[in-house]
Design a protein around this nucleic acid. Sequence first.
RNA 1: GGAGAGAUGGCCGAGUAUGGUCGAAGGCGCUCGCCUGCUAAGCGAGUAUACUGGGAAACCGGUAUCGAGGGUUCGAAUCCCUCUCUCUCCGCCA
Length: 423
Amino acid sequence: MLDLKFIISNLEEVKAKTKARNYSFDFDSLIQKDALRKSVINEVEKLKADRNAISKQVGILKREGKDTTELQEQVKRDAGKMQELDSKLAEIDEEIRSMLLNIPNLIDDTTPIGKDETENVMVRKWGEPRKFDFEPKNHWDIGADLGIIDFERGVKIAESRFNVLAGIGARLDRAISSLMLDMHREKGYIEMSVPYLVNTKSMIGTGQLPKFAEEAYVCERDNLYLISTAEIPVTNLYSDEILDVKQLPVKNTSLTACFRREAGSYGKDTKGLIRNHQFNKVELVKICAQDKSVEEHESLTHDAEMVLQALNLPYRVMALSSGDLGFSSAKTYDLEVWLPGQNCYREISSCSNFKDFQARRANIRYRDADGKVKFAHTLNGSGLAVGRTLVAVLENYQNEDGSVTIPEALRPYLGGLDIIKKG
RNA sequence: GGAGAGAUGGCCGAGUAUGGUCGAAGGCGCUCGCCUGCUAAGCGAGUAUACUGGGAAACCGGUAUCGAGGGUUCGAAUCCCUCUCUCUCCGCCA
C-alpha cells in the first residue's frame, strides 16, 4: 500500500511508475475522494469539538448542582447531523482504503523499464550448461522411467497438476529441502515452521488479497486460505508489531508446501513438476530498516544463488522489467536454472524487495535509533523452489542409461547414495 | 463440543462496583542530562499513534483511539448488545 499523502504530493511520478508496469488506475477519482474526505472531517470535527466542550461544561455545572437542561438540548440538536457525517466519513474511508489496496507498489528506480518478461535484463550468469553426447530427456520421462515420480496417481487422488513422489523421489525432495535449510541456517536465518492456513488479514498484509483472490485455495467454512508461499505466514508473523531496530534485520527461512490454483494458466507446463497446484518451497524472508533493504536484497539473492552453486546447477540472474514485476514488489531478481531437457532457463527463485509496501498493509514497524517509529522494509525470495530444484537435478545429472547421478552436496542427506538407477 | 475467565500504551499492570478533572496511576524499558576512576547502582527530566486545521519551520489547536462493531447518554476504558480472539477446566484426539 502506498502512502496517500505521498501519492498526492508526487502524483505525476506515481502515475508514470504505475503505467510503467502496465497498470491503469484512476488516480483522479482518488484525489477527489480525498478532498471530499477532508471537507467532511472538517465539518464533523467542528461539531464534535463543540459537543465535547459543552459536555465538559455540563459536568462542571452538575457538580455545582446547577441546571444544565438548556446546554443538553443544545447538543442534542446536532446529534443527528454528526451521526450522518460520521457514517458518510466511514464510507469514504472504506472507499479510499479499497482504492489504495488496489494500487501496485512503485517500481524502484533501478528496475528496468520494459513491457513484459521479454524485456527482463540479465544481470549475471553462473556455470556453463553441460554438453550432452546424447539427447537429454525431460524430467517427467526420467522420473517416470525411474519410478520416482507418479503423475497418474497424483491425478487420481486429487486432480491434474498434483503429483506423487515415490521412494528415492520423495527422499530426494526431502534431501534438497534439508540442504537448503541447513545452508540458510549457516547464513544466520532462523528456521520457522508455520501454519499453511492463514486468515484474510494476512492475505491482505502481503498483497495476495484483495486483487488476486482467484489464485488462492479457500477453506470457506473456516474463512482461511491455503498459503501460496511461506512469504505470507512468515512476513505476517510481525504484523501489528513494533520491532526494535537492534532486532533487525530479521532473517527467517521456512519450508512449506505452497498451494496455487494456477487460474488462467491452463495448457501451460501441463507436463511434469514445473507448474503444480502443490509444491514445496524453502523461503527466505527478511524484515529490515528502511535504509538497509537495497543491500539486504542483494545478499538475499546471493544466499539463494548459493544453493544452485552448491548443486553445481547453471543459472542466470534476471532483473525483472517493470512490465513483469509482481504487484507488491519494487524490484525483483529472478533466478533461472538451466534445464537441458527443455533446452532453456526456467525460473526457480524470485527475490523481491517490497520496501514499505507490505509493511504498510501488515502494519510492521520498528523503533529506529532516533526513537521514531517507522514502517519496516520487507523482502523475500525462494531459496529455492524444491520441486523445480528436483527437476533441475534430474535433467542436469541424467546419464545416457536413464540413471541420475546424485550431486555431491546431497549425498550426505541420502546416506551416501550417489546414483539413482532403475528398479 | 461443554463450562468459566479475560482483552487497557513498546512491555507489565491499575482503573470498570459509584460514567465527567482519564490519553489514561504505578512499574519496567527507552532517550537525554547529572553522578560514580570502568561496569552496576543512584538522581533529575522526557517518552503513544493516526488523521486534521494553522505555520517556512520549531510548534500550536482539533478529532479519534482502552480487542472490533453497534447502542444508551449532554458525556463511555467504565453501562447494554453483537462479534472476534486469548487463556483455564472438562470432553475428544495426532
